[in-house]
Simulated assay, not measured.
Amino acid sequence: MTNQSSANLPSGTCANCGAALDGPFCGQCGQSREEIRRPAWMLVTDTVGDVLVWDGRFLTTLRALFAGPGTLARSYADGQRARWTPPIRLYLLVSLAFFAAMGLAGVRVIAVAPYPAAETVRAQDEDDIQRRMASIETARARGGTDVASISCGVMPGPDEINADGQLVYAADGGVNVTMMQRGASPEPRRIDRATADCLRAVMADAQVPAIIAELTIGAIRDPAGFEASSSAAAAQALILMVLAMALINLLLHPKRTVIEHVILSLYFHAALLPGFAIVLLLANLVAGSIGASVGVAILALAGQFALTWLCDRQFYGSSWYGALLRLPVQITGYAAALTAAALGLILLPAL
């Protein structure tokens, strides 16, 4: 490689490495001989072309992906790579599109729900306050762990709302953490030092790990911040799941090379995320109906089973019963790995 600047090179010489050119691309480094000094707006068209066109392979790859992700992965692993978008590029694009779509749709990947809800606290009348206080006294009279669970915070009533309008953690309060909920993050609750210490002691008595106690207090104090950090952890966990699935298949198909399992896992997850998005859309449409929600959950589980079984057959050439026998191991291992990855990444910031 030479140190000459591109301005001093002859017209038939590559501006990048100085090799002689005999075509539109350099035979040594592959760079195009196209002149870079062009109108600035052409940089935009170049970028759009690289991202969306990819020599016409992208749409072709998408069609093949949804027709049979295992067949597509097998074709790529067997060397037919010129016609398909590389698996890691496709996976990254699909995952970015998925999380962007969740954000635009107002879906919180990890959702915090303090209770009682802010609407309940702000709208309660004297009868509501008396009922809540009576329930606390009843629980205290029963003794045992019920006493500890409601002994922290202020009593229900006007004291739950500060003069500045901020909500305060109440004695019968708590927090639930769910997934894929629409709407804005809930209001934060103020927890003073004494209440925080009380909650730590309560959870320690219940043998709750200290790190979970800190996360709980943090989620109550700052639901939006907790949701943001947890959602970022969920995105990272999804990347780890590519490796987890590859490892599971390596254990089930040890004669195959590692790169084959990784290729299948990337295409598998690229097909899984759009299906997951459809399930989320259906779940939001039927929200409030228990029967319909159960139906959507069954549909999601059946789709996961079918996709895993189909990929095993298409990619590894398994018989239908052989793929069926491996299915429980794959699904159980995947669920365990997903849980471990998500919890680990959510807990990591608190360590």
Rank of each mutant, 00 (worst) to 15 (best):
residue 136 I to Y: 07
residue 128 D to H: 07
residue 192 D to V: 04
residue 177 V to E: 10
residue 148 A to P: 03
residue 199 L to F: 03
residue 154 V to P: 03
residue 127 D to N: 12
residue 133 M to W: 08
residue 140 R to D: 09
residue 143 G to Y: 08
residue 115 Y to F: 15
residue 179 M to G: 08
residue 200 R to I: 03
residue 169 Y to F: 15
residue 181 Q to M: 11
residue 183 G to Y: 10
residue 203 M to Y: 13
residue 193 R to A: 15
residue 150 I to M: 12
residue 111 A to S: 13
residue 173 G to C: 05
residue 136 I to F: 08
residue 184 A to M: 06
residue 125 D to M: 01
residue 104 L to E: 07
residue 202 V to T: 14
residue 158 P to T: 12
residue 172 D to I: 10
residue 200 R to M: 02
residue 136 I to R: 07
residue 167 L to Q: 02
residue 127 D to T: 15
residue 104 L to C: 01
residue 133 M to T: 11
residue 108 R to F: 06
residue 192 D to R: 05
residue 183 G to V: 10
residue 136 I to T: 06
residue 192 D to M: 03
residue 114 P to I: 03
residue 125 D to G: 08
residue 195 T to I: 03
residue 151 S to I: 08
residue 178 T to L: 13
residue 203 M to A: 07
residue 131 R to F: 05
residue 174 G to F: 11
residue 123 A to I: 00
residue 105 A to Y: 05
residue 202 V to L: 02
residue 155 M to E: 12
residue 179 M to F: 13
residue 119 E to H: 01
residue 115 Y to I: 06
residue 138 T to N: 10
residue 144 G to L: 08
residue 173 G to Q: 02
residue 105 A to R: 12
residue 202 V to P: 06
residue 121 V to M: 10
residue 155 M to F: 04
residue 181 Q to N: 05
residue 144 G to D: 15
residue 199 L to V: 14
residue 171 A to M: 12
residue 172 D to M: 12
residue 109 V to I: 14
residue 134 A to D: 15
residue 196 A to L: 05
residue 125 D to L: 00
residue 160 E to S: 10
residue 149 S to N: 11
residue 122 R to E: 00
residue 191 I to K: 05
residue 166 Q to C: 11
residue 168 V to L: 02
residue 154 V to Y: 09
residue 196 A to F: 04
residue 111 A to I: 04
residue 171 A to F: 09
residue 177 V to T: 15
residue 136 I to Q: 08
residue 201 A to K: 11
residue 151 S to A: 14
residue 115 Y to M: 09
residue 151 S to W: 01
residue 160 E to T: 07
